[in-house]
């Protein structure tokens, strides 16, 4: 067990998490603790299990061995527990996954109205505040298909925040974006981290990781190879695989 570096209790606890796809062993014993307000960056080569792992936190993928506890709730087959955890964890996807048949504001207010049972007026007021926070209040009545990729991803962040989650999960949020739109999304994420949100981010944006992350985890072949603060990871990586991977993605 690693020594907790925050005074509060961990909000996410993963103990010996395993996951198989058929015979393929995708996650091989992941141990991780995330504290309130901590920003965790997960990086590693493709196929290393980092996306699979972040998706087990809100049960989009089922783990088959080990234990995951989110905000005091243990993930089991109990559907009500799963829905409670999903209410407390927002997720942002690589492909945005906005609902194309709904306007931007309806995308954002849908879950607050139908899951949290807020009034429409209340949900829209908070939705507009969030759109302002991500910088695109003027797009509220448009459909997702009318927005650029960067704008869509910012709407997706606003949609996840509208449920007022305690944890935000980001699964490669900038990988599908054109280069000139990456910054606008990272800026929103940085602001979110500064506001004290607990975040788990799968990303290859090492500049973002260096600036914002409290802890970084390097995944390879379904395992955590190395973890530490950005200073430790970038300044003095212990493992050869970490060094190799960093040299590959930082060389250009």
């Amino acid at each position: 067990m690693t020594e907790p570096n925050h005074s509060t209790d961990p909000i996410i606890i993963c103990r010996d998490v395993h996951k198989w796809y058929g015979h393929y062993h995708a996650l091989r014993g992941i141990n991780m603790q995330v504290h309130k307000g901590e920003v965790v960056v997960i990086f590693g080569p493709s196929g290393s299990g980092k996306s699979t792992f972040i998706r087990t936190i809100n049960r989009l993928e089922e783990h088959q061995r080990g234990e995951i506890i989110v905000d005091g709730i243990r993930l089991t087959h109990d559907v009500r527990d799963i829905e409670r955890i999903r209410m407390e964890t927002g997720m942002v996807f690589q492909q945005f996954n906005l609902f194309p048949h709904l306007t931007v504001i309806d995308n954002i207010t849908l879950a607050p109205i139908w899951v949290r049972k807020w009034s429409k007026a209340q949900a829209e007021e908070i939705g507009m505040q969030l759109l302002k926070r991500v910088g695109i209040p003027e797009q509220a009545r448009k459909y997702p298909g009318q927005l650029s990729g960067g704008q869509q991803q910012r709407v997706a962040i606003a949609r996840a925040l509208a449920m007022q989650p305690k944890i935000m999960l980001f699964d490669e949020p900038t990988s599908a974006l054109d280069p000139e739109m990456i910054k606008e999304v990272l800026d929103v994420m940085t602001e979110l981290a500064d506001s004290g949100m607990t975040m788990m981010v799968v990303t290859h944006e090492m500049g973002f990781a260096r600036a914002v992350a409290d802890t970084m985890y390097f995944f390879d072949q379904g395992q955590i190879v190395e973890s530490g603060t950005p200073e430790q990871i970038f300044g003095d990586p212990k493992e050869a695989r970490t060094k190799l991977f960093l040299s590959q993605i930082l060389s250009h």
Partner: peptide
């Protein structure tokens, strides 16, 4: 309907 639509809906806590 792409799988991402199901995942986004589930991730928001919709039953």
């Amino acid at each position: 309907i792409p799988r991402g639509q199901y995942e986004a809906a589930r991730a928001l806590g919709l039953n």
